[in-house]
Design a protein around this nucleic acid. Structure first.
Lengths: 329, 329
DNA sequence: AATCATTTTGTAATCGATTACAAATTGCTG
DNA sequence: CAGCAATTTGTAATCGATTACAAAATGATT
């Protein structure tokens, strides 16, 4: 790869002039510009991001942190981020953290080191303190999961309300025994969704029974299968299940297969996220749809504003209840 | 963020000495090393990747190109790559190309510009010429999809054989009318899987009928649904279907629901990839399992060897036929 | 204490770009 | 064509690290 020196030499000008051509400075005469452009073409030259970034403290690269790419929930969000980034001449790099603080740290360092201009974190278990610290001096936006009462701007939905509405839908269908398949309540969204679940039950004077609340370790299908098996072993079985993620709900659906029970006649199920799989199951899955693409777009716009030094406000977007076969008894 | 100058000043030594401490050079006395380490701690200093990379032409970052993160097929491969990379003090960045040559180009430039040390491409529609060109001067490994007769090292499976075995399995079950849901044959794997399909049919003197071969535009569920609908409208319907990806097979399964036909009694289905969802469908999906994690590990090891300047040989890994309910009539 | 070998540290060039400032060129005007 | 302003180009410092080489400090030996 040629460097700027060689281009300058070939064009018979100084490196400063080449740099000016590269940056479309107005003060270059047409004649020299053409000379330089030819030299660039001949040498197949492309400017080094490294040299440029070192000097400019700008990389036009955005980092997107996510715990795992295996959850399809992130797919559409990333599309939104990516399209918005590209429209603003930024590129994105996806960083899978596996919720491992050490890995997170490596990516935080990329930001500190100007290898990237900002970060959108979708990792719920992120090291709070490190992140807040980073956010003091660098652009950071949280997406989906956020820090209650924290200072880092976020974009999310009203999980409590969504859960409340989902459970209310189950109650309206006549269900009185409603189970909750929740993830670990160290996550804010898990606490919020539980809270919405309880609010709906209370409103209709239904009891909150601990044995109908199951906590899973992860959000994989298998965790949902396991949860459902436990619920089906109870003496008093629920007649409906609200799972806090589609992956869990799909696993639960699987757990019911072969038990002789029928969805939705014996047991109604609602998921959360509206991942593309949720429409492929048999029966198809009723679920809460998050505006994932829009979340991505919003987060990216917020980050880019933040990089420009503008103030940004957190945003709460609307959700939808998508009613499908798993609750159409 | 403090820089190396400030650390040197605080420790009362030269920048060279600080650099030596950072790089664990043997020639630093214990006394000065301690002074420097204290200064580093006090200033909360972390070396700039940018300065280091510019000087060293090394970033210890690997790029992983993939067309879309929405296909779960890539998930396990990436796990393998990531774990191997970390074990060798590398980090990975995922780059979603959407099979867009312009985007690809941006990431290729990151390699050329030393922002990353090498690239593993899983993008089948990659710009062949650009990639080969890049591979001449930079470490590149292809994973899964590769360039037949090309010079770029790859890791893959024997798609032709896998398809042959899958179709033979259908024939052994007594099927004589076997359809193929293939993707676009511009992809090498699509041509290879078709070839294996035809070899099996020929071996058992079964006719190859064009109307039983459907080509989809993408690998999304919806493409499989659509394909199945077309096949079910034929006068002479197939009794079995081999789909070249699980996503298509799952869509096909969905397409059969509501048609009154039963899987596997009326129609057997085989997919390809063994994505985690393939075990969640009802009935569960028979499929060809690729050693995805191992592919990732192998690709990463090959890339790291290549970065070290060693010669690497392409690898063909073993696959497995996983028999589940969709072919257990 | 002088000499020399060995260990430790510092000086300054380097990587590839950008840009403030200085210098050179161009074009006008009288 | 001298004089001056406006335009164009070049020089050299800079970003933050690494490292060859030089210089200084240390220690051993006589």
């Amino acid at each position: 790869m040629a460097n700027i020196q060689q281009v300058a030499e070939k064009a018979g000008v100084s490196v400063a002039t080449v740099s000016r051509v590269l940056n479309h400075a107005a003060s270059v005469s047409t004649k020299t510009r053409l000379k330089v452009e030819n030299a660039i073409k001949e040498l197949n030259y492309e400017p080094s991001m490294l040299g440029r970034n070192l000097r400019n403290s700008e990389s036009r690269l955005l980092l997107v942190l996510l715990p795992s790419i295996s959850n399809p929930f992130y797919t559409e969000i990333i599309n939104g981020i990516q399209n918005t980034a590209i429209a603003n001449s930024y590129n994105i790099l996806l960083c899978e953290t596996d919720s491992n603080p050490q890995r997170e740290n490596i990516y935080f360092n990329m930001i500190k080191n100007k290898l990237a201009d900002g970060v959108i974190s979708m990792d719920p278990t992120v090291n709070r303190q490190k992140l807040t610290e980073l956010a003091e001096s660098h652009p950071v936006i949280l997406c989906s999961e956020y820090d209650e009462g924290g200072s880092v701007p976020f974009v999310t939905i009203d999980s409590e309300l969504a859960a409340y509405q989902a459970v209310k839908h189950l109650i309206r269908l006549g269900n009185k025994k409603i189970a909750l398949i929740n993830s670990d309540e160290k996550f804010l969204y898990a606490r919020q969704r539980r809270s919405g679940y309880e609010r709906a039950l209370k409103e209709f004077d239904l009891p909150i029974r601990e044995e109908w609340i199951y906590h899973t370790r992860d959000l994989e299908f298998q965790n949902g299968v396991q949860a459902m098996r436990m619920l089906l072993e109870l003496e008093e079985k629920p007649t409906a299940v609200f799972a806090v993620s589609d992956t869990l709900a799909i696993g639960a659906l699987k757990g019911i297969n072969g038990s002789g029970l029928h969805v939705p006649n014996d047991l109604a199920i609602i998921g959360f996220d509206n991942i593309s799989f949720s429409n492929m199951t048999n029966p198809t899955l009723t679920t809460v749809s998050q505006p994932m693409y829009k979340m991505g777009v919003t987060a990216a716009n917020m980050l880019i504003m933040s990089i420009k030094g503008e103030q940004v406000e957190s945003v709460v977007l609307d959700h939808d209840l998508i009613i499908r076969e798993s609750t159409m008894g």
